[in-house]
Design a protein around this nucleic acid. Structure first.
Lengths: 115, 115
DNA sequence: GGGGTATCTTCCCTACAGGTTATTTAACCT
DNA sequence: AGGTTAAATAACCTGTAGGGAAGATACCCC
């Protein structure tokens, strides 16, 4: 996944309204109106959020009469999972980090002595 | 993790410069100047990026003489991993999704017939 | 104390995100 | 055809993100 795509996905996820919409879509397809229902927000605002999600590839839109149902597309989330996975050791190997911390602490104390 | 915190973390990750900084910090502590080196960008701009990362809890800053070394803090990344994990089934259980798709397709064909 | 180095602060600019209202398009149903 | 419903578009406003330049601050070393 290109950096640009990852930008778009992370940016899309940085809004609680949009994350809530994804959560709703995890339960199945929904129309714009249905997605808008929980929010104190105009429909055009909702449409904009959906465009952001769509540009990030997180949803696709259908066409059924006057409805444009939204469907969750989880592929970009897999990319996010892959990206974050490369950092797993940094939250699991706390001991290495502890060593770093102690070394740092020592250096700072040395610094404090000089102050 | 609160929604606000998740907002801040995702927003921080939505910038390629900041993701590159985290990647650099995965190799160990670095000063502001070291972090700035790969980018065609003024130091104040780098400082701002670091503040964004710090507010998101993704880095902490030390104090050593005239240096303010940055260190990766992966805890928020674990939260991101947890969040995204709740969607795992949606990129793994492709068959369920396929069923949805076929149902959708059928509905659209019905629609096409009427047009 | 003075020069050099690292970093932060302040002020400014531009672009874009997220929201609004009003209008338009498109499809349905009588 | 006319009315209703779903959704998109257009035009606008406000706040904030990301960048630059210039100056301030803090620390080291001689």
């Amino acid at each position: 996944m290109s950096s640009d795509q990852l930008d778009a996905v992370f940016a899309a996820l940085a809004d609680p309204t949009r994350r809530a919409m994804l959560a709703r879509l995890a339960a199945g397809e929904a129309s714009v109106k249905e997605l808008a229902e929980p929010f104190a927000m105009s429909l055009p605002a909702v449409t904009k959020h959906l465009h952001v999600l769509q540009r990030a590839g997180l949803i696709t839109r259908g066409k059924r009469a006057q409805w444009r149902p939204c469907r969750l597309e989880a592929e970009p989330l897999r990319e996010v999972a892959d990206w974050v996975e490369t950092y797993r050791q940094f939250w699991e190997h706390r001991l290495d980090r502890l060593e770093d911390y102690l070394r740092e602490l020592q250096a700072e104390e040395k610094q404090d002595d000089r102050e």
